[in-house]
């Protein structure tokens, strides 16, 4: 593993996308602020906006760093560098997820902070965390599919499926007896169900990343 080159490749991607990330963070924070306004309409606009920003940012960063780089032939430029395919894969996995996290973490932190400090019920925190983590899981899956398939149509189909799944997941989680009834409560209710779901989400991220690394590590050549 060529750590030095992996760092340089991640840094290259960071330089390419840092301005967009700043924009997404600003928009995400505005959405979170809207959620604290004393109006249901504005609250729901804020929720939709926030989800859109988190999903949109992941799609932008992931598809640009993986598929567009191949489609626009910058990949040929990178293949000539002193790296192996696995170095490139690791840079895309760490870089893609890392750059997205730079956007995801502040937005989620602001959201949780606002829930705790505003008139919004603190009971929203677990479901907000679970749903934001689900978007992170979807981002990890999309990233791995993009790296493995190198195909824009496949990646877009997976993205659509993940978005549909997110909606189903949101209703499923809100309907759980261990979560739903506590959403509008003034206190946070972290119970075993919440921890299990969060652990499962982190587990899925670890699994898809490991599988991608395993598959790519068996490839000696780029083409």
């Amino acid at each position: 593993m060529n750590t030095l080159m992996i760092t340089k490749l991640i840094n290259k991607d960071w330089q390419l996308y840092k301005l967009y990330i700043a924009g997404y963070i600003a928009l995400g924070c505005i959405a979170a602020i809207l959620m604290t306004m004393p109006s249901y309409t504005v609250f729901y606009i804020g929720v939709v906006w926030l989800i859109t920003i988190l999903i949109g940012a992941s799609a932008h960063i992931i598809l640009s760093t993986t598929i567009s780089e191949i489609k626009e032939s910058q990949f040929s430029f990178l293949m000539g560098l002193p790296i192996k395919p696995i170095d490139y894969t690791i840079s895309k996995l760490i870089g893609g997820l890392g750059i997205y996290l730079v956007c995801w973490l502040p937005i989620v932190a602001v959201l949780i902070g606002l829930i705790l400090t505003s008139k919004l019920p603190d009971g929203m925190v677990p479901i907000a965390l679970i749903l934001c983590l689900e978007i992170l899981v979807a981002a990890a899956i999309l990233l791995c599919v993009s790296i493995l398939s190198s195909s824009l149509p496949v990646s877009i189909i997976v993205m659509v499926i993940l978005n549909v799944f997110f909606n189903l997941f949101m209703f499923y989680v809100a309907g759980l007896n261990e979560i739903g009834p506590f959403i509008e409560q003034p206190d946070i209710a972290f119970n075993s169900t919440v921890f299990t779901i969060i652990a499962a989400e982190i587990g899925v991220i670890a699994l898809v990343v490991s599988v991608t690394l395993y598959i790519k590590s068996r490839k000696a050549c780029f083409l």
């Binding site: 060529n2 390419l16 626009e72 032939s73 910058q74 040929s76 430029f77 293949m79 000539g80 560098l81 002193p82 790296i83 192996k84 170095d87 000696a220 050549c221």
Partner: peptide
């Protein structure tokens, strides 16, 4: 391709299909 990392340190490659950012 076994030693590609070391070799590419001393090798310059340019192709028609290659694009910069």
């Amino acid at each position: 391709p076994k030693m590609q990392t070391q070799v590419k340190q001393d090798l310059g490659y340019s192709s028609e299909e290659m694009k910069l950012y």
